[in-house]
Design a protein around this nucleic acid. Structure first.
Lengths: 196, 196
DNA sequence: TAAAATATTTAACGCCGTTAAAATCTTGAG
DNA sequence: CTCAAGATTTTAACGGCGTTAAATATTTTA
């Protein structure tokens, strides 16, 4: 698996050939089938590893302050991705291709991650930062969408990690500003301008 | 090419085998190579066709009214996709995989399409609908992002065309509301609630 | 009508994921 | 310690894929 990680990181998932992998791990191809399985199984292990790492990165984030909460989530992810950028890019591409982030499943990845921004939005509404003219569900879904799009654009190689961070946070603040009460909105305007 | 379109529409791009294609077009495989080229060339023709159709769909849209302009753009696209949903889904997936929408190229697809919402935002600012606290470039880019994400989610099969329309338009209105002047903002709130 | 140019097909190559069956190594009872 | 039973690894091959050189058939041109 270490050899697979390295190959995927350097050359992408499609470049991973079982014969090459066997050579670099000093075994033969059927041994890989015996120990791990075929290519889809390798993919599943990579995706499982990805999700574990993301969960670890998102654990114990203080959500008491709205802006800090969102920024911390994104910063933690950016830091995680930076530890092995090629690998995480490849892992996300593999995940995207295998429909990892489909919306329907109640217990799926999407449902799990979209719940966080929705909860923070509810909190912000309770604090009077948001007007409540737009439902927390709609707002949270689009906030998560901002992150998802930036993440995809980064993993497709359209831009680098610093820009992933900028785009994500700008998107989050933009969504919040849509429903923000006057003072909070002005604060968001400043932050968005600073991110340009 | 008609046979290729049909196969891609029904079974996706990966399911397109040159031998099957040759059989269904009543020629042999090397004839395909002679007339069209290899698999990447077929992909390029599909993508070219896709872009042409999109251009046609977006031509002659009245941009004098802000909300109507955005809604018309999205509705025209949704109508186009509806004419052969499987095919357009497959074509977009092929396009995404070949890096069709990369951001950097000055003359690329991204630069071309992102220019439209930016222009409409400038117009809205001039009309006093937007405050101008957020730059038209930032706003336009995120508006285009809302559409892009919804389009990707649709083409990945995460939701259907009606929801593509809903998600796109909600995203656009959300971005606009972030920088909207009071009256315009209230109008957008109503539209967003209605779309829920 | 014959030769030149073009178009199509035959037949094969190399690469891929995958797997049955043989060979090797490990384990445990007598 | 020995040797059969079990688990592991390797050998060798299969079928399917995109691709292409070379032979064949067709069309065009002089």
């Amino acid at each position: 698996m270490a050899a697979a990680r390295q190959t995927i990181a350097k050359e992408g998932f499609d470049a991973l050939k079982l014969r090459d992998l066997a050579t670099s791990a000093d075994v033969t191809v059927p041994t890989i089938y015996n120990l791990i399985g075929g290519k889809p199984d390798i993919l599943n292990l990579i995706i499982g590893d990805l999700l574990t790492k993301i969960d670890e990165a998102q654990a114990n984030i203080d959500t008491s302050e709205v802006e800090a909460a969102f920024e911390a989530q994104i910063d933690r992810l950016a830091e995680l991705f930076a530890t092995d950028e090629d690998y995480y890019r490849a892992a996300f591409i593999a995940g995207d291709r295998s429909g990892l982030f489909e919306h329907d499943s109640e217990t799926g990845v999407f449902a799990k991650f979209v719940a966080q921004p929705i909860a923070i939005c509810r909190d912000a509404k309770a604090k009077g930062l948001l007007l409540g003219e737009i439902s927390s569900e709609q707002l949270g879904e689009h906030i998560y969408g901002s992150y998802r799009l930036a993440r995809q654009d980064w993993s497709n190689g359209y831009f680098d990690l610093p820009q992933f961070r900028r785009q994500s946070i700008t998107g989050v603040y933009l969504c919040l500003a849509a429903d923000a009460a006057p003072d909070f909105r002005i604060r968001l305007f400043r932050k968005i301008s600073a991110l340009q």
